[in-house]
């Protein structure tokens, strides 16, 4: 527990060192990032739609439009004004008064933009900050921009057969792996990126010790075994497997016995009391005999016999 208290105390200490004017990174402080006139008040979404009829036509079918009365928890900001701020001065000025438009939103950094969404979508905000997309120049709008004002779904980009294409727009380097002879069938639509990757989390996935990414489907590998392979229980699956695709059978990282001997190579290839020279001369592979490579209940050598 002391190991946990140390970083925690460091973080609390940081709180007292932070400049008070820094942009918000958390909580419902999205609007706190701006200097909003004191006399600005919420005018209601209908006031916006009365003039912005071009947006209204599409917004009426957007996921955000179902209930114009939905408000940011604990505030009076609802619908359009939840993101664009109180609009009374804008309405009174016939479009000239204060409103949070592109010039304001464009001045926010990634975390500030994410905060615009997480003030309502707090479930995503809970994990986003730790996620693999956080800190990479990616924001909610990178994937969900269309959903804010328009009727289309963020997913998929093309069709239902292959939702992975949405992710491949930014990760085209993964396509080559999915064209390997042995692969998870992502381009064929059997498996989706989201089956393994949570785009909002990533870093936090699996922290509870269940190794859920791979074992959620390959549950038979999860044990618990009486005899378990160190590589399975103490490490991660990617030491031996390339999950996207491989030239090698079973998505193995390396070919042949080199995979096993990378860790298990011993002089003379005598493991325990058993010499293996003669066996391997006949082009056998390690897991021809040690077939229960992930774990066994009865064989200490993870073998079939």
């Amino acid at each position: 527990m002391l190991r946990l208290l140390l970083p925690a105390s460091m973080v609390v200490a940081l709180a007292f060192l932070l400049p008070g004017t820094a942009p918000a990174i958390a909580g419902t402080g999205y609007l706190d990032q701006f200097e909003i006139p004191a006399d600005a008040a919420y005018a209601g979404a209908q006031s916006c739609l009365d003039c912005h009829d071009d947006v209204a036509a599409s917004y009426a079918h957007s996921p955000h439009a179902v209930d114009l009365g939905l408000a940011v928890p604990g505030t009076g900001a609802a619908s359009c004004e939840a993101c664009h701020g109180p609009g009374s001065l804008h309405v009174a000025g016939d479009g000239e008064g204060f409103i949070l438009g592109a010039e304001h939103l464009g001045g926010l950094d990634d975390d500030g933009l994410v905060l615009m969404c997480t003030q309502c979508h707090s479930g995503q905000g809970l994990v986003w900050g730790e996620g693999s997309h956080a800190g990479t120049g990616t924001t909610c709008a990178s994937c969900h921009a269309d959903q804010v004002h328009f009727a289309v779904q963020a997913l998929p980009a093309a069709d239902y057969r292959n939702p992975a294409e949405f992710c491949l727009q930014c990760h085209p380097d993964q396509v080559a792996d999915f064209r390997m002879p042995f692969r998870h069938r992502v381009l064929e639509g059997q498996v989706s990126c989201a089956d393994c990757h949570d785009p909002h989390a990533g870093f936090a996935t699996g922290w509870n010790g269940l190794n859920e990414t791979c074992l959620a489907c390959h549950v038979e590998m999860s044990g618990p075994f009486v005899f378990e392979h160190e590589g399975v229980a103490g490490e991660d699956c990617t030491i031996c497997h390339r999950p996207h695709g491989s030239l090698n059978d079973k998505l193995l990282v390396q070919d042949g016995n080199g995979l096993c001997l990378q860790c298990h190579f011993e002089s003379g290839l005598t493991f325990g009391d058993t010499g293996h020279q003669g066996v391997l001369v006949n082009e056998a592979r390690c897991y021809d005999c040690h077939g229960e490579v992930h774990g066994s209940h009865t064989s200490p050598t993870l073998g079939y016999n």
Partner: peptide, 22 residues
């Protein structure tokens, strides 16, 4: 299985974000 975690996301000035986890 039991697990616990602590973490923090802190903004250090206008240009830096620090993420800590245990």
């Amino acid at each position: 299985l039991s697990a616990g975690r602590l973490g923090a996301i802190a903004r250090l000035g206008d240009s830096a974000v620090l993420r800590l986890g245990a």
